[in-house]
Amino acid sequence: MQFSDERIKLLPFQNSDFECFLEIITCPQMMKHVYDPLTYDEAKSSFEKRLPPWELDSDKWRSFSISEIINGGKLGFISIRIVNHEAKIAEVGFMIKASAQGKGIGRKALKLIKQYAFDTLMLNKLVAYCSVDNAGSSGLLEKEGFIRENRLKQNTLINHQYRDDYAYGLSKPAL
């Protein structure tokens, strides 16, 4: 299974994606709005839980590498996990390498995962969370049609400080 546009492709995580995942998830600068950076062992465990197989009735993350079509360079990852099977609601999260940020990669990946969620998985709604201080992520979500539904006070503990998060939602487009 692969999703692509003219510039990027999304592929389910493979062992070869670990180095990119590790680079992002252990980097204090990259993680400053998400949670404390993981250790190598924590990153390895988290990555292995995201490897296929994945089933529609699963509650674990389904993660996809984001790669450039032209040179195959790994740019980050985007993940989806169903949080309410009955209501068909899934959470989406993404991390783009610092060197690839600001180039439209996240937006293209989010467009592809929305299409997968609504057209293939037949989900009803996507939700996403980001730090109120993460203007890049909140701006990206809003450009892609997500609506800010709530501000969650002291929702995340990062570096021994509680941080507020925004909760976003995007319902399946009406036919």
Rank of each mutant, 00 (worst) to 15 (best):
F118L: 09
A167S: 12
I158Y: 11
P173S: 12
E142I: 08
A43I: 07
K114F: 07
G104P: 09
E91H: 07
L123D: 02
A109Q: 02
S79Y: 05
G73Q: 15
S58D: 14
S4E: 14
I96M: 04
N71E: 12
S131Q: 05
G76F: 00
I8V: 13
H85N: 08
D119C: 14
S131Y: 01
L10W: 03
K88H: 07
E48L: 09
V34I: 14
A109V: 10
F21S: 00
I25R: 05
E144V: 08
D57Y: 04
I69A: 06
M1N: 13
L141Q: 01
S131F: 08
Y166E: 00
F118S: 09
L140K: 04
V127M: 15
D41K: 14
E23F: 01
Y168G: 02
S171V: 09
W61G: 01
G72V: 09
T39H: 06
N159Y: 10
D165T: 11
L140Q: 05
I82F: 07
G136S: 13
F118H: 09
E144M: 14
K60V: 15
S16Y: 06
G106W: 00
R148P: 03
Y40A: 06
M95D: 07
S65W: 06
L152K: 07
R148N: 12
C130Q: 03
V127E: 15
L10Y: 03
W54A: 06
Q29M: 08
M30E: 15
K103A: 09
G93Q: 04
I24A: 10
I66Q: 02
F94T: 03
A100E: 14
D17C: 08
G136M: 02
P52H: 02
T26L: 08
S131M: 06
M1I: 09
Q29L: 07
N159M: 04
K9N: 09
Y116D: 06
K88Y: 09
S63Q: 10
G76Y: 02
I89T: 13
P173Y: 05
I158E: 03
G169R: 01
L170E: 05
I24C: 01
H33C: 12
Y168K: 02
G139D: 10
